[in-house]
Amino acid sequence: MKLPRSAPRATVRHRTVEANGIRLHIAEEGEGPLVLLLHGFPECWYSWRHQFGPFAAAGYRVVAPDQRGYGRSERPGAVEEYTVLDLVGDVVGLVHALGESRAVVVGHDWGAPVAWHTALMRPDVVRAVAGLSVPPNPRSGGTPPLRAMRELYGGHFYWNYFERPGVADAEFAADPRTTFRRFLYGACGDNPANDPVPAQPLVPPGGGFLDIVAEPGELPDWLTDEDLDAFTAEYAESGFTGGLNWYRNLDRNWRLTAPWTGAALQMPALFVTGDRDLVHGFPGMSELIPVLRQLHPTLREPVVLPGCGHWTQQERPAEVNAALLDFLREAAPPTG
């Protein structure tokens, strides 16, 4: 039986703000210390639908933007305008555009590296930081990531498929609702293919990404037809190119972040993940996650959710909210 739909309440407000020279659509609710929620790919503000009410009720001002290139936000045309420096600049600009000087920054999937890098680059702006699914990953001094994956998997790793101009863009845009249904089910903990450890996401020769993600017989309890409708509607105009351009900058980001090699987080930090998350299968992750607290002494003990896949805050909202609110009460207690 499906769980009751948990749609954003009418008290979630929508507007557009100017930040870092571009227009960003935001959804917001509540009053108190500012908490920014940064989504991943292929998502938008709606992926945080289960967090608005509980966070606002706990005394926080919750703001979830559509990040650069996504949904209702502005979509620059040049690939080079989607570097990690641009994305961090958007976060800092958004904090200031909202009339604040500091914020707690929480990110999921691609939003997590943006959150971690914002914390590393602008510790004066970030009160506390949390990442879901993707841990703070130290920059290697060896080979840029796209080239490394190309050499390791013969060009079949999904990052390399995504970096090809126009290819994944067209595949995903051909039927966006099918894209979301297969993406969200394929990487979730309810997909038996992800138990115990998801396979490497390798795109077959001559095939597409959707060939490697299963078509669900029925939707898992946490995902409704209304949710699929919402994601599809949010992407109706924007398409997928803006989000894919983030992947196309992975090697450029590797070069740009050289000055922060070996830098450690300076503020309270939290990592939340599921044990069926595909990121756990990425090269080096099994060695990295056990030593995260040695690399970042301000990081709490990671929260690992049994049976949870990649879509952490959507699959397990109650547990994620409890972990984040416990963290927030200590790191950035509400006022009043």
Rank of each mutant, 00 (worst) to 15 (best):
R5M: 03
A7S: 13
P8R: 04
R9F: 00
A10M: 01
T11A: 15
T16Y: 05
V17I: 13
E18A: 13
R23E: 12
E28I: 06
L36S: 09
L38S: 07
H39I: 02
H39Q: 10
F41R: 03
E43D: 14
Y46A: 02
W48K: 03
Q51I: 01
F52S: 05
P54G: 03
Y60G: 06
Y60M: 09
Y60H: 04
V62P: 05
V62G: 07
A64T: 13
G69I: 12
S73M: 13
S73H: 13
P76K: 11
E81H: 12
T83E: 06
V84E: 05
V88I: 15
V91Q: 15
G93T: 12
S101G: 15
R102M: 13
A103I: 14
G107D: 13
V114K: 08
M121G: 06
M121D: 04
R127N: 05
G131E: 12
L132H: 11
V134F: 03
P138F: 09
G142F: 07
T143C: 11
P144Q: 08
P144A: 09
P144H: 09
L146T: 10
R147L: 15
R147F: 02
R150T: 13
G155C: 13
Y158C: 00
E163A: 15
R164D: 12
R164C: 06
G166R: 09
G166V: 12
R177P: 07
T179R: 05
R181A: 11
R181Q: 13
R181S: 06
R181E: 15
L184Y: 15
Y185T: 05
G186K: 12
A187D: 02
G189Y: 09
V197F: 07
V197R: 14
Q200P: 05
F209H: 08
F209N: 00
L210Q: 07
I212Y: 07
A214R: 15
L219E: 08
P220R: 03
D221Q: 06
W222C: 06
L223E: 03
D229S: 05
G242A: 02
G243D: 03
N249R: 01
R252M: 01
T257C: 04
A258Y: 01
T261I: 04
G262L: 07
A264W: 00
L265H: 05
M267Q: 15
P268D: 09
P268R: 09
T273K: 00
T273I: 07
R276G: 10
G281V: 06
F282C: 04
F282G: 04
P283A: 11
L295E: 00
P297V: 00
T298D: 00
L299W: 04
V304A: 06
H310F: 10
H310K: 13
H310T: 09
T312V: 15
T312E: 01
P317C: 10
A318E: 15
A318Q: 12
V320E: 06
P334Y: 02
G336T: 14
